[in-house]
Each structure stands twice: as C-alpha cells, then as structure tokens.
Simulated scan of single mutants.
Amino acid sequence: MQTYAYFPGCSLETSAKEYDTSTRAVFDKLGIGLTEVPDWSCCGSSQAHKVDRDMAAAIAGRNLVLASEIGDIVAPCASCFMSLKEAAVELEHDSGIRDMLKENGLEYLPGSVRVISTVEAAHNALEKGMFEGKVTKPLKNLKVASYYGCLLVRPPKIAQFDDVENPMSMDRLMEAAGATPVKWSHKTECCGNAYIMVDKDMTLNLVRNILNAAVSAGADVVAAACPLCHMNLVMRQPYMMQKYGLKSEIPIVYFSQLLGTALNADEQDLGIDGEVMRLINKRRQEANEVKEVG
C-alpha cells in the first residue's frame, strides 16, 4: 500500500475537522495510507516568516525531518502546504538552516522528503487509475466551481504543480466523481483572508467577486481545498447579501467531502451539510429523470 506522511496542521484539528476526517476517508477508500507525522508542530504559517524567515523555515523543517522517516508528506491546508514547501526549498540550499536543526538534534537530508497537497495526491491517484470502479455514488448533474485559491499553484517555482493561471487538477477530480466542473474566472483569485483585520472592505470585495463569479457560472457549490479560504467564503455570505452586492448565497464545501460522497464514504466522516446532501440528491434525481425521458 502506498503511504504518505500526513500533516493535518492546526486548523484541521479545530475549525476544519470535516476536512481532516473527509480527507482520511477518501484516501482510505482509494487504498492509500496516511500516517500522521509523529509529534508534529505548527508549521509557522502564515506569520512566522514575517518575524524571522530562517526560524520559520526551521519550524516547518522540523516537521519535514519527522515526516522523512515515513515518506513524502501530504498537507491538506494550502497555507501549511506552502509553508512546508517553501521550507523544503530553502533547506535544500541553505546549510545554515540545516545547521539550526542539527543543533536541536534534527538532521535534514536534502531530497529526503517531497511536499504535496491533498489535491495533488488525489490527482496522482486518479492518474494511476485508483478511482476506477470506486465511484459508486456519482455526483450526477452537480455543477462545481473548483476553487484553488492563491497558494495551491503559486508561486509556480515553489508549488511546482498544475497550471498557474488555469489549474485543472481539481476539475478532473470532480469529473471523476461524476460532477460537472464549471468554467469560471476566479478559480485562483485570492480571497483576502489574511487581510480581514487590516482592510475589511478589500477582503469582502474579493470574496464577493469570487462568489458572484461562481454563481454567474451556474455553479451549485464551490469546492475549496484550504480551511482559511473555506472559512472566509462561508462566514461572510449573510452579511455580504445585505451590504456588498452578493447575488445569492452558495454552499462552500471541501473537495474531499465531494469525493468522499462519490466514493460512498461514511457520511459521518465526511461531515457534509444536510442541505448540501439534499442538493446533491436533487441533482442526481434530475439526472435520472432526464435519462428516463431520453
């Protein structure tokens, strides 16, 4: 069995538990092992690098050393992914940061571990044919806006995954799950989560533009792959309907929740909202009715 080192990060143990449990459920269905990094610690995202870049790389590097005993490391949170990815790049070329780790009893060997996101790991599984015969409850007729945000594929020299302007990996995963990915303009636009305390209006305008673009594209749901983006897109909607010209509310789900639904994973593990499940079942029924008429 293929096994990854799994780095849940802080958010997946608190505000994004459903992302954690649905990710574990999906990889279990695919026959891929996830071994949690022992004694993992906060990766330092997203503020540590603003205080001390070397220390930030060392904090994330500690987790890479621990993960290297298991295998390549998978990080669901896009912010954690980028923090670990940046640290891996810096550790490859900066012996000073490696020495900092060594002083604390940790030795990083260049090339010993690769950092990938859960989207990339799932897409790799798709390309290997690991979804074949396992999508038993396809998301028929469900229109999905795949939202990558600003950290999964950028900066390209660090992320080294998918197309920086028009990524398609999550869209292909949604297709494999039986859904219909929509073409839309804001799949890699920043949601402004990190700036909500600095410039509220700017952040809310960014969120409004993203959600309005998804609605205009005809999406039923937006699929996210970052707990910070997810929270930002969910929490602001009621207020934005009143103050910021949001066309209509739209459900925000983790891409892993949709994959898990199609793979017939336990609904309790998926943590998917009842209203979203009713929408999924409604779209399935509509697809079946069209098929019967045809």
Rank of each mutant, 00 (worst) to 15 (best):
P227V: 02
H186A: 14
A194H: 12
M235Q: 14
L263N: 11
N193K: 07
C229M: 06
E249C: 00
M170W: 04
M241K: 15
Y254H: 11
P251K: 02
V198I: 15
A194M: 14
G245T: 02
I210A: 08
V182R: 08
A224M: 07
N166E: 15
V234F: 02
N193H: 10
A214T: 00
G178H: 09
L173P: 04
I158T: 14
N193R: 06
R172M: 07
V234G: 00
F161T: 02
I250A: 12
D163F: 03
A217W: 04
C190R: 11
K187M: 04
T188I: 15
N212G: 04
L270E: 10
V164A: 15
K247I: 05
A176G: 05
N232L: 02
T180H: 10
C190S: 11
Y195I: 03
N209E: 14
N212P: 03
V222N: 03
L233C: 06
V164T: 13
T188F: 06
P227N: 11
Q268D: 13
A262P: 04
T188W: 07
W184R: 04
Y244G: 00
L204A: 04
S169C: 10
W184G: 03
Q242H: 10
V153H: 11
I196C: 03
V221N: 12
K157L: 07
R154T: 03
N209V: 00
T188L: 05
